[in-house]
Design a binder for these strands. Structure first.
Lengths: 356, 356
DNA sequence: ACTCAAGATGTAATCGATTACAAAAATCGA
DNA sequence: TCGATTTTTGTAATCGATTACATCTTGAGT
């Protein structure tokens, strides 16, 4: 069986259409791309030939000739994460309007996969790149950076004047989270981290520490539990939490998954949320609406983030703007729901005694 | 500003490398694609030139010449659905091993988006198609079906001998769900549907009715609540449920989201799960592990489904097999957890009185 | 009817690789 | 060392479109 055994039986080229319509290939091309440049009568004849032959231009040939691929690479750390999936929807909506396609660069949290996507750039398979990671992938001798291709960062800011960033204000939001808990009377805090090497994590932890400082507390007034952005990180944090002598009462989780994992686990120990411990998440993914109790969290404008990022990239590709001075920072919304509340007892141990 | 203002300053072509190495373009090409065909000395000289110039072949030109794009189109109804995201991971793992890329066809539940992806096929931008939908998109005069491109169905079986299906046994599983609830003593059932027009839904509902018949009951012994595969469908079902006189005690939901939406809502009415009503979901997505109570559900082998589907498609593309007689059906696993239990009271009204 | 500009169409180069075929170089045996 | 054979390399056609430039039509103005 030949290697190309699967190919369509009939493959119609522009020359076939030209012959059928009795014109040159140039005319057929013009009819399809710039109809005003040909006479109505010719136009109709060509269109008729196109219809009858079922011709669709070979887009690879178009790409080669025009040097535009109409594709954009979106590099994401992990596709199963609903945050990235939702951003992707926004990106897709915007790109589709302009006829651009998406090629997914799913790192699946494995950094060695980067090489593959850098190659897509170097071999000119895309016209631009959206980075949902906080850094520019390197690869061998050359990198995306040197390719000259437009890149937009959509994670925490990439420090490079040539690269515009479209991000959310996670530092500010995290800081607000601490202040919000403090206003409810909390004075001992827990911080459940995300993936340590990620820039998002360091932004959020940075904001957290700013908040701690802002309310006049110090490094001694909080504990930090570490792990990636997944449910089980919250579960592990909860297990450390229940073993503590002097438990914090206000918990900030760097993502909703770990917040929910934490809550599920502490409730199994008959610790009540929010009466015994308040928990605040981050992201505002859909299932946080359905957790028990409903999660207090910051909702990211994910769809908008995707749309704005894609829009900036398209402007860059079209040469309608330069990279400098494009750092957009979208605000987050605090959803005050059921997992946070005022501190009931200063001394948690006495609380336990009184309840059980 | 010129239209191509973004393009890299230096663009190295194969001819540049050839000149640098003092050989012809044919030799450079051979060094890169079939190194054994050239003398070691030439090989080294060419590689040195490649390294020094930072050459990467223009893959669009390669595609045009070889008529292979090394891309596969994956058509999915909705990307934010964790089920599809997980399948996609499996697909990605398998395709990456063979050097193929993924182009995402996200329908976002809007059927009119199909045209765009049919065009990708007709304009020969992909070598094959994986359908996570239950039907082949049509478009204008021609369709994917006529393109002659290999297609693999990964939803409920597509009825076309030319198209292999790699699917899960959802009909059997749903039937088993009914029998499982019946074994716990349930005799009045509720069925929370998924998107009505989807083939998955009709498969699952079909299995449900088979189960009802198998335990000797009839159409009068269950109610069906309709809606798409989302949380709010379960919420709406719950609202109808609480208004009922003679409530069912065994609920099957066609997806975990609606099962969780249902549970969240009935608990708000102080109806207990599973003491008052048992709920069984479908899919086994990650957050079903963290719902309260932990959801009883069928776990789909999503990652494996993706890998197997991609593998079948690659075999088809390579001409290593024919489409006929390739219908793979993967089994599901029942996760018996906390939302199902034996029937406690035959008469639910007396139950309410006795409890509150 | 004639000129000339504007508009429509055709010819052929081009995008950047791969590869059939031809030509040259290396290898081998006698 | 010579010719036959095998291996290596080069030349040029090819994939299928777009588009600069040349050429031919059309129609307005006089």
């Amino acid at each position: 069986m030949s290697r190309n055994s699967w190919r369509a039986v009939k493959d119609i080229r522009i020359a076939d259409v030209a012959r059928l319509a009795g014109v040159s290939t140039a005319t057929v091309s013009r009819v399809l791309s710039d109809p005003d440049k040909v006479r109505k009568k010719t136009h109709d004849a060509v269109m008729e030939a196109v219809r009858r032959s079922g011709y669709t231009p070979n887009s690879t040939a178009q790409k080669l000739r025009t040097r535009r691929t109409m594709n954009v690479l979106v590099v994401a750390p992990r596709l199963t994460n609903p945050v990235f999936a939702e951003i992707l929807r926004g990106v897709d909506d915007e790109l589709t309007k302009s006829g651009y396609g998406i090629i997914i660069g799913n790192l699946d949290n494995r950094r060695e996969r980067e090489a593959r996507y850098v190659d897509l750039v170097l071999s000119r398979q895309v016209d631009g790149v959206l980075l949902l990671t906080g850094y520019i992938p390197e690869h061998g001798a050359r990198s995306m950076r040197e390719s000259g291709l437009p890149i937009v960062g959509m994670c925490a800011a990439i420090q490079d004047p040539a690269i515009p960033n479209v991000v959310v204000q996670d530092r500010e939001a995290t800081r607000r989270a601490v202040e919000y808990l403090a206003a409810l009377g909390h004075r001992r805090f827990g911080y459940i981290s995300g993936t340590l090497s990620s820039i998002i994590e360091s932004e959020r932890f940075g904001g957290f520490k700013e908040g701690i400082a802002a309310i006049g507390l110090s490094r001694n007034d909080f504990v930090r539990w570490e792990g990636p952005f997944v449910f089980s990180t919250g579960v592990a944090a909860a297990e450390a939490f229940v073993r503590m002598e002097d438990r914090p009462t206000g918990i900030f989780a760097a993502c909703d998954e770990s917040a929910i994992g934490f809550i599920k686990r502490v409730r199994a120990e008959r610790i009540r949320v929010p009466q015994d411990v308040s928990v605040i998440g981050f992201d505002g993914v859909e299932f946080s609406d359905y957790s028990e109790p409903t999660l207090t969290t910051f909702r990211q404008p994910l769809h908008e983030l995707g749309r704005v990022g894609a829009d900036v990239l398209l402007k860059l590709i079209r040469g309608e703007m330069k990279s400098e001075d494009w750092n957009i920072r979208l605000p987050l919304t605090l959803l005050e729901r059921e997992t946070t509340g005022p501190v009931l007892h200063k001394d948690y141990k006495s609380l336990r005694r009184s309840v059980f």
